[in-house]
């Protein structure tokens, strides 16, 4: 047993079992509580054992990319797309914690609030709390919780990344990198890192000048490069189709199998 500290809630095994049952039944408050517990007490991962046997073949889609490229807006469009197919969607949106104060301004869900009244959508913002790699330490555990709660697609939005925050590759079944026009030439497209590990690259804001150049540069080096305008939804059906096509090639296990830890 990992050291669970003196947190009274974590010592309450019966209470945790009830919480786990509520999570499996899809109770939103219970899901939220359990994710907080896992965020606040990394030693509490033992709790996840209580959720075992609940694999449902959930698809985990990572959305990463540069700051301001439109990740949240693309995620919002994908949520709408999957909801039209009546698929339950969980979103984990990661933003960065201040290295100075530990505080964070979690603003990804501003772009997703149209889904706040939809019972088939669960959105959770997570701060990195000093964790490197583009995700929060508890993001994988939170995905596990959402799978147990019956969410069929989990979209994980990383922080706005540079070139080296590629933890999402270990967690998601498929990684979509969102870039915007005008951020470098062909040599940038050749560099190792983020673009190299993405399965699909999306040039968002595809209506801006320079988008054609960016698409051409990327397509010289990568097989799956798509154009979207997420503010209008243009290109989103094609993106969803590309995600599905990729996943048919690569058979999908459950959340636990995708994770490296």
């Amino acid at each position: 047993m990992s050291p669970l500290g003196s947190h009274p809630f974590l010592c309450d095994i019966r209470g945790l079992k009830i919480l786990a049952d509520q999570v499996r039944a899809g109770n939103v408050r219970a899901i939220s509580r359990l994710i907080s517990l896992l965020e606040n007490h990394p030693g509490g991962r033992e709790v996840l054992r209580l959720l075992n046997g609940t694999s449902r073949g959930t698809r985990v889609i990572g959305v990463t990319g540069y700051p301001g490229a439109g990740k949240s807006t693309v995620v919002n469009c994908l949520v709408a797309f999957y909801r039209r197919q009546r698929v339950k969607v969980g979103v984990l949106a990661i933003d960065i914690s201040s290295s100075v104060t530990g505080g964070a301004l979690l603003g990804d869900r501003i772009r997703m609030q149209e889904h706040a009244l939809d019972q088939g959508v669960y959105i959770r913002s997570m701060a990195t709390r000093g964790h490197h790699g583009g995700l929060a330490q508890a993001t994988g555990d939170a995905a596990f919780v959402l799978e147990a709660a019956g969410y069929e697609v989990i979209l994980i939005e990383t922080i706005g990344v540079g070139q080296n925050e590629v933890d999402i590759v270990d967690l998601a079944h498929i990684v979509v990198a969102v870039v915007a026009p005008g951020l470098g030439d062909e040599v940038q497209a050749m560099k190792a890192g983020l673009l190299e590990v993405a399965h699909i690259i999306v040039v968002n804001k595809g209506d801006l000048p320079g988008a054609d150049n960016t698409l051409r540069n990327l397509r010289e080096w990568y097989p799956n490069v798509l154009r979207t305008v997420a503010t209008t939804g243009e290109g989103i059906p094609e993106l969803a189709a590309a995600i599905t096509a990729y996943q048919q090639v690569r058979s999908v296990g459950h959340v636990g199998e995708a994770r490296s830890c």
Partner: peptide
């Protein structure tokens, strides 16, 4: 200011309904 005081702030933006 709350961010600078170490708080995790979830900012929802404008025009929200109480239900949201």
């Amino acid at each position: 200011a709350l961010r600078d005081a170490g708080v995790e702030v979830i900012y929802t933006g404008l025009h929200q309904m109480p239900e949201q």
